[in-house]
Nucleic acid binder design. Sequence first.
DNA 1: CAAATAGTGTCTGTTAGACACTATATG
DNA 2: CATATAGTGTCTAACAGACACTATTTG
Lengths: 218, 218
Amino acid sequence: MITSTDCVLFTLHENTLKVLLIKREHEPFKGMWTLCGGFIQPEQDGSDLDSANRILLKKTGIQVNYLEQLKTFASAKRDPRDWSISIAWYALVNHMVFDSSVVLQHTNQWQLFDVDNLPDMGFDHREIVDCAVQRLRNKSLYSSLVGYLLNKEFTLPELHQAYEQVLKEPVDNSVFRRKLKEFDFLENTGKKRKIGASCPPSLYRMKEGLTIMNKVIK
Amino acid sequence: MITSTDCVLFTLHENTLKVLLIKREHEPFKGMWTLCGGFIQPEQDGSDLDSANRILLKKTGIQVNYLEQLKTFASAKRDPRDWSISIAWYALVNHMVFDSSVVLQHTNQWQLFDVDNLPDMGFDHREIVDCAVQRLRNKSLYSSLVGYLLNKEFTLPELHQAYEQVLKEPVDNSVFRRKLKEFDFLENTGKKRKIGASCPPSLYRMKEGLTIMNKVIK
DNA sequence: CAAATAGTGTCTGTTAGACACTATATG
DNA sequence: CATATAGTGTCTAACAGACACTATTTG
């Protein structure tokens, strides 16, 4: 019995929702694109969450902003070696961390892929990604998740754009702002971002301690 | 490493949402109330879903109407014997099956408990039940799930009552019926149920092939 | 035809969506 | 002070919730 964990790591890049895939170095599925995953280590990991964080950190050097259990994939056939259980997760990070990760700088065996234009993938990882994309898009409608794809401080126009990129459809500006007021998960830093010959937007950050809000955006 | 599966089996009884708990016969937690669970058997089970169905059938004799993966609970401490993974599920059945199950008739080591008045439970099963109740109540608002708690054929007043019992709050009759029309997951059998000196309600059944609808009730 | 329950219509306040508008800062 | 973008107001159609009403069947 194989007990493992796999994580769908999302970020926004080039105006698109992307996922990190890693090129497998060993059989099975050597050379194919797969999720960031690994075996659960009972000696090291106190819980499934620990496993996910440990493996993310080890394989990408990234400490994520948001991490949530997605679903467990388990069957006799998903791994040719043996009956296999994988606890799948999805995580959200700002794209900056990809530039600052020492681990990723030392290899080119990884790539960010548009979630709507994925390559062939090993195991049942395509199914896992599709499941995660569906969950993220759905949950974005009534939560503050999208905020975790941005830098710690961001402007409302940036957040607005992020929603449109995740959902792949336009979001009305006044609806967007009305909803944000109801949600109330942001706090104004007082600072503004200078851009050019125009009105500079305020910088906001996520309030501490919240992950999910309970109303509908869109 | 222990790999197991546990199921929260819901039904409606005495106007209340209840869960089946089983009194444990062995250590650990011998004599305490626990969920219907067991070990994954790689030789017998093709998938996690197969495990859940097999264990339900073996321990309760019940074939459920609806079964959905809930969440996976995994840690070093949840089972005193070893590091343990449990893939948790929730299932919905009509109360009738408890009377017709031969397996359950041959033992009294089980009981149905009000979800809002649970006994002390072994392992982390209390947490699992709470998680399942939350999921069921939430999903009931925008799905046809509640229908799976009823008999194959049921009346609209029965379904209405079932919603109120699951949600533990009144549901306006005209809103209820308006929503059902939008959802469109029922078909009229043409039959009616005779009760007494009053207008007999029509009998409906769930349309084949659907499990989840996508609008909001309540 | 009275009683009881099934089932429908109607009114009101709230909200999503569309879009026009005002405010603010900079070169 | 022109320009560009930030941010707000307003109108309309749809819908949830409350509740009164009509319809149907049986003893």
